[in-house]
Write a protein that binds this DNA or RNA. Structure first.
Lengths: 103, 103
DNA sequence: ATATATTTGACATTACTTGTCAAGTGTAAT
DNA sequence: ATTACACTTGACAAGTAATGTCAAATATAT
C-alpha cells in the first residue's frame, strides 16, 4: 500500500474507480483531455477551481483534496531549496504567531 | 521589541543602520529605487538573487535571510486559504517522507 | 486491423512578475 | 517659502510563467 500519493494519483485512481474516462471528466471541467491527463500524471498543476470541481465529480472530500493540493503547491515552492525544510518550520511558527495575534 | 519582522523590515533597518540610501543599495542591485522601496515595505517580493545580494551588501547572514524570505513565499501561497495551516503540516510530513526515502 | 483512450509536444493566449519612469509627498536647511 | 534631497506612488512596458488548444503519436482492447 502506498503511503504517500500525489494529488494526480488520487484523481486518477478515483476516476478509474468510477469508470469515468478522461473525456467525461475533462468535459465537466471544460478543459481538453490533454490537460487532465497531465494533471493526473503530475506533469501540470491543477487550478484551485479544478480541484474543487474534481472533488465533486469524483465524490472526494473537498477539504482533504484541497489540503493535499495546497501542500503540493507549498513543496513546489521550495523543491530546489536546500533550506526548504527550515523555511517550512519558520513558516509554521509565523502562522502560529499570526493566528495567535488575530484572536 | 518586535518578535516577528518581515524581510522588508529587516532590510530597511539594516540599510539605515549602515547609513545607506535607497539610491546606494538599489544601484548595487541594478534596479530602480522604487522597487527597493516597495520591497522594504513588503509591497513587492524580492527575487532570490536580490536577497542574496542584499545579504552581502548589508552584511547579513545569507542563510538566515534566505530562510526568512522563503518562509514568506510559502505563507504568501496560502495566505487566503482557510486550510493553509493544515496544508503546511502536511507539507512538512511529505518533506520528512521525501528526505527519509532519499537516504 | 480498427476503434477507442491516453499521451506528447508545438504552439497560442492570458495572467503575473519584474522593471522603468515621472510626478507626488515629506522633511530639513537656508 | 523655496530649494534640495529621500522616499513613495501609480501608470505603464517588457519579460516570464501558467493555462489552454490542437493534431499527431502511442497504447490498449476487440
Amino acid at each position: 500500500m502506498k503511503e504517500n500519493k500525489t494529488t494526480g494519483e488520487i484523481l486518477r485512481e478515483n476516476r478509474e474507480k468510477k469508470g469515468l474516462l478522461l473525456r467525461h471528466v475533462s468535459a465537466k471541467l471544460d478543459i481538453d483531455t490533454a490537460i487532465l491527463s497531465k494533471i493526473e500524471r503530475s506533469e501540470r498543476k491543477a487550478t484551485k477551481e479544478q480541484i474543487l470541481k474534481l472533488a465533486e465529480i469524483l465524490d472526494l472530500d473537498k477539504d482533504n483534496l484541497l489540503i493535499q493540493y495546497l501542500s503540493e503547491k507549498i513543496l513546489y515552492e521550495i523543491k530546489d531549496e536546500e533550506l526548504g525544510s527550515k523555511a517550512l518550520k519558520v513558516a509554521e511558527q509565523k502562522m502560529k504567531y499570526i493566528s495567535r495575534k488575530s484572536k
